[in-house]
Design a binder for these strands. Structure first.
Length: 470
RNA sequence: GCCCCCAUCGUCCAGUGGCCUAGGACGCUGCCCUUUCAAGGCGGUAACACGGGUUCGAAUCCCGUUGGGGGUGCCA
């Protein structure tokens, strides 16, 4: 395959959502696989809805994902002259005409007619000249079919009689996406149009415009399946029209590598079934022909699993560095995390979970979780108090390092009556009261290591506090 | 309504006429390991939507039904 040229064409009307991210990824994958390029085109022709400041956010998220684009992003609004020139050509060739119907009139007639909604060709042969309030419409053929080969769907065919006379130029003179798209794709030398399934219906219009303009080259199309939510609805339509944004996941502590890897498994799968793997390998394996045509559910649980795997695979210092931006208490958190980093790393699924897990080491303002207190302390009866006392005694005297702390707690367990059938200390239960007293909860990082970091005095103070609470 | 598309475990992916008593992953779950929790090890749960064809043979091909999705804008 000659080096392909692809483009991702977001419109700055919202944040980058995960569906968009998946589209960027698949475009990027094709470009990388075949030594081509992926360009960016900002489709900002909708002056009403446009929010230019969002462009930077979208670019930043794409960068965060690590999916670099080639060249400078193109702004469609800078290219209006090309679009209007094409519009004039179409008008001159008689395949476009001016229409002065308002959107309200079009709708009203459709309703009155009782037939299908849409434009009825009212102004087709009125020979209107351009004037105030006139839009330029494309004269769609009444007979025949328009079809194209889609890399993921095969041949798709539309009856031309079902294609209405759509708008090329709005009455304010600004070209619509339909026109701008075709002109820009050709001008930018785009060979592959890889986009969401929602564009399938617009494709025959794209083709009709291109043919009318006399373009001899057609890009290859690939319409990716939509990403859906738990209700099987398009993700970007979720809630109040809010998409599930990439930013949301970034802020929640997901790694871009995990996100990208997970996204690659939606609508596609590696031939060998190995899902979690470096992007470089995916590049070598990816193929649009192998993309599934059916909608895919965006499963946050599975994404989270990927994320946990990626976190665990990090070098420990890298893990700390990546978690740092999520610390509200900066250096103080890092100081208590460092000695336990490896242990914490194996226990979190999100970077945002790191700080809460070591908070009990940073602050003395530890709240005892009631459920944990009941389950791991109260339920043990008298032995809980005995354990707390014995632990305090042993810990007060021992050497303050891991083995000694373990030994002290083992002895305390024996003294408090936590003994198993073999006569050994039953630490699974005995560590409970100490853990809750010190950390406030019944789950957390390994206890001995935690105590060493906490320090003798603070440990003893918490043991005493718990004792008096009993 | 009309147009287009889709249809394998709860979910994602594998399967492209015989290798399928349908495979992997997430989830859920049993056991083991274990200082809690994780992680790890070994198991389990669970699917070819339905009905017709074609064929010696169908999850795989064709038709229909049903179900789902996308579109139907002077949004992109």
């Amino acid at each position: 395959m000659p080096a392909p040229r692809l483009r991702f064409a977001p419109s700055p009307t919202g944040w980058l959502h995960v569906g968009g991210a998946r589209t960027v990824l698949f475009n990027w994958l094709v470009a990388r696989r075949y030594g081509g390029e992926m360009l960016l085109r900002i489709e900002d022709t909708d002056t009403e809805r446009n929010r230019p400041e969002l462009t930077d956010d979208i670019l930043a998220e794409i960068e965060w994902l690590g999916l670099a684009w080639d060249g400078e992003p193109v702004h469609q609004s800078d290219r209006l002259h090309l679009h209007t020139k094409a519009a004039s050509e179409l008008r001159a060739a008689g395949v476009a005409y001016w229409c002065d119907c308002t959107a309200e009139q079009v709708q009203a007639r459709a309703k009155q007619r009782g037939g299908p909604p849409g434009y009825d060709g009212h102004c087709r042969d009125r020979g209107l000249a351009q004037g105030p309030g006139t839009a330029l419409r494309f004269r769609a053929p009444d007979v025949g079919t328009t079809s194209f080969e889609d890399l993921v769907r095969g041949t798709v065919t539309f009856g031309n009689d079902k294609i209405e006379d759509f708008v090329l130029l709005r009455s304010n003179g600004v070209p619509t996406f339909l026109l701008a798209n075709v002109v820009d794709d050709v001008d930018m030398g785009i060979t592959h149009v890889v986009r969401g399934e929602e564009h399938v219906n617009g494709t025959p219009k794209y083709l009709l415009i291109g043919d009318a303009l006399g373009f001899d080259h057609r890009p290859v199309f690939a319409h990716l399946p939509v990403l859906v939510d738990e209700r099987r609805k398009k993700l970007s339509k979720r809630r109040d029209g809010d998409a599930v944004s990439v930013a949301e996941f970034r802020q929640a502590g997901y790694l871009p590598e995990a996100m990208v890897n997970y996204l690659a498994t939606l609508g596609w799968g590696p031939p060998d079934g190995v899902e979690i793997r470096p992007l470089a390998e995916i590049v070598g394996l990816f193929d649009l022909d192998a993309v599934t045509p059916s909608p895919a559910f965006f499963d946050t649980k599975k994404l989270t699993h990927f994320n946990a795997e990626y976190i665990r695979a990090l070098a420990t210092d890298e893990f700390v560095a990546r978690a740092r931006p999520f610390f509200a208490h900066g250096d103080a958190t890092e100081a208590v995390l460092s000695p336990l980093a490896r242990e914490v790393q194996e226990r979190v699924r999100l970077l945002s979970e790191v700080e809460p897990m070591v908070d009990f080491l940073r602050t003395d303002d530890v709240e005892i979780d009631e459920a944990s207190w009941q389950r791991s302390v109260v339920k043990l009866g008298d032995r809980a108090g005995a354990m707390l006392d014995a632990a305090a005694g042993g810990l007060a005297a021992c050497l303050w390092e891991r083995e000694a702390v373990e030994a002290a707690l083992s002895d305390a367990a024996l003294a408090a009556g936590f003994v198993n059938a073999e006569g050994n200390p039953q630490m699974s239960k005995a560590q409970g009261p100490v853990r809750v007293a010190v950390t406030g909860r019944s789950v957390g990082p390994p206890l001995y290591e935690s105590l060493v970091v906490l320090g003798r005095e603070r440990t003893l103070a918490r043991l005493r506090a718990a004792r008096s609470r009993l």
